[in-house]
């Protein structure tokens, strides 16, 4: 094991895959000379040169489309969005061109591309820069969607995403970039897309979550443990495909479920999990499924309102208390 920040783990994943596959390249705004707006691509220009680490103009629809075309032609682009908020400029290309082509062509043309970048709220960057897109992309057949929490998963999942023959939406988190975790010290460290991880076993309530909210859920579990509530935390890691087996196995044990996400709850990931569990494990539930999500408002700038709008460890703990009472 080596200790790496999420930022370093992502960089290493890209560098390793670029070393082993000449068709892999990185493209996006400020990825080369600036070393990435959040320094995720630090050192890549130096190692791989301007042919493979490419600064683009601010033209998301255009370069996403160019990436998708290049992927159809057999290359394996990693397209960085400075943040996923700006991928909305390109979402037509992602959904209509990347996600659907394999199907529309009867399997003749596939699109091996990774779209990656920070997703969700950062710190006080307000409504247009703070949105979680997990549910948006999870909606679309033809896409895979992953959202790691730890550096080990960030690295293993990114490598899996780059090797995947399909378009993968890779949702990072700006606040997590600087956090350190133990990472297996091996170029073979791959985390298969589609498998969740029970990061804390427990017997009283299942909490499903992903990305930065895993940390908040773990914090909540600590507080709850002191009150005699033993929470099981599932880091989904992969949003599409969703590892429903792991979730259901857990619910069969705990008989209670809370879903946690930073994004809006309406038609969100929690709504999807709640429906799935209701369909497949209804008889195991001792209580209604609770959804914890961001407040149903555009994210405000003011510090106090922002804190109120985003799920905190305390919000999650409160939901568990309510459910386990």
């Amino acid at each position: 094991m080596v200790e790496l920040t999420v930022r370093e783990a992502l960089r290493d994943a890209m560098a390793e895959e670029m070393r082993s596959d000449a068709d892999v390249f990185l493209m996006g705004e400020e990825v080369a000379e600036y070393q990435g707006a959040y320094k995720v691509s630090q050192g890549l220009l130096e190692e791989f040169g301007a042919r493979r680490v490419i600064d683009t103009p601010i033209t998301e629809a255009g370069f996403a489309g160019i990436g998708i075309g290049a992927a159809m032609a057999g290359l394996k682009p990693i397209v960085e969005f400075m943040t996923f908020n700006f991928a909305m400029q390109a979402i037509d290309q992602i959904v209509n061109s990347a996600a659907k082509t394999n199907y529309m062509s009867g399997g003749l043309v596939n699109v091996p591309i990774v779209f990656r970048g920070p997703n969700g709220a950062a710190s006080r960057v307000a409504a247009q820069h703070s949105q979680c897109y997990a549910a948006w992309y999870a909606h679309v057949p033809g896409l895979k969607v992953v959202a790691p929490f730890s550096a080990a998963d960030a690295k293993g999942l990114l490598k899996a995403a780059i090797r995947d023959p399909n378009p993968v939406i890779f949702l990072e988190n700006e606040i997590l970039y600087g956090q350190s975790f133990d990472v297996p010290d091996s170029a073979d460290h791959i985390v298969p897309i589609g498998s969740a991880n029970v990061v804390r076993p427990g017997s009283d309530v299942t909490i499903t979550t992903f990305s930065i909210m895993v940390g908040k859920a773990l914090e909540a579990a600590e507080a709850l443990a002191g009150e005699g509530i033993d929470a099981e935390i599932i880091d989904l890691r992969s949003i599409r495909p969703l590892d429903t087996e792991t979730i259901i196995t857990s619910v069969e044990k705990t008989n209670r479920l809370i879903t946690v996400e930073e994004g809006w709850p309406t038609a969100g990931i929690g709504a999807e999990i709640s429906a799935t569990v209701t369909e497949r494990a209804f008889d195991f539930l001792d209580a209604p499924v609770l959804r914890v999500g961001g407040s149903d408002v555009p994210l405000p700038y003011a510090a106090n309102l922002e804190t109120l709008a985003l799920p905190q460890a305390e919000t999650i703990a409160d939901a568990a208390r309510k459910l386990c009472r």
Binding site: R124, A126, A127, Q128, H129, P298, A302, L305
Partner: peptide, 30 residues
Amino acid sequence: GRADGVSKGKGGSMHMFTPEGGFYGGHGIV
């Protein structure tokens, strides 16, 4: 980000408007 900010503290540096003065923002998407 305070109560008497032009956007009641909800918009911040990037999202300010004064329709009275003919100014309509303050937009974050390039």
